[in-house]
């Protein structure tokens, strides 16, 4: 077995070890992406509102 294969195999614990790491990765990334997206939406909504207001003037 090559060393990469044995690394991925994790001595038979591959499922447990890699699910733990994969899930942690997903949760940590989501916690960065979601607030950034929300901030963007916040600005977009307020800019739109402002443009509507200035048009009606």
């Amino acid at each position: 077995m090559s060393s990469l294969q044995s690394f991925l195999h994790m001595g038979g614990y591959a499922f447990y070890v890699w699910s733990a790491y994969g899930l942690s990765f997903i949760v940590l990334v989501l916690n960065v992406v979601l607030p950034l997206k929300r901030e963007q939406q916040f600005f977009r909504a307020l800019i739109k509102r402002k443009e509507r207001v200035s048009k009606n003037k």
Binding site: N31, P35, E39, F42, L46, K50, E51
Partner: peptide, 29 residues
């Protein structure tokens, strides 16, 4: 890092009607 990132958004939301947030929006436009 992420708590600051999130707190920035919370502050924007708290201060959405304040002068400095309006300025920010003007800049973004």
């Amino acid at each position: 890092a992420v708590v600051l990132l999130r707190a920035r958004y919370e502050i924007l939301e708290n201060e959405r009607n304040s002068a400095w947030v309006c300025e920010l929006i003007e800049q973004r436009r």
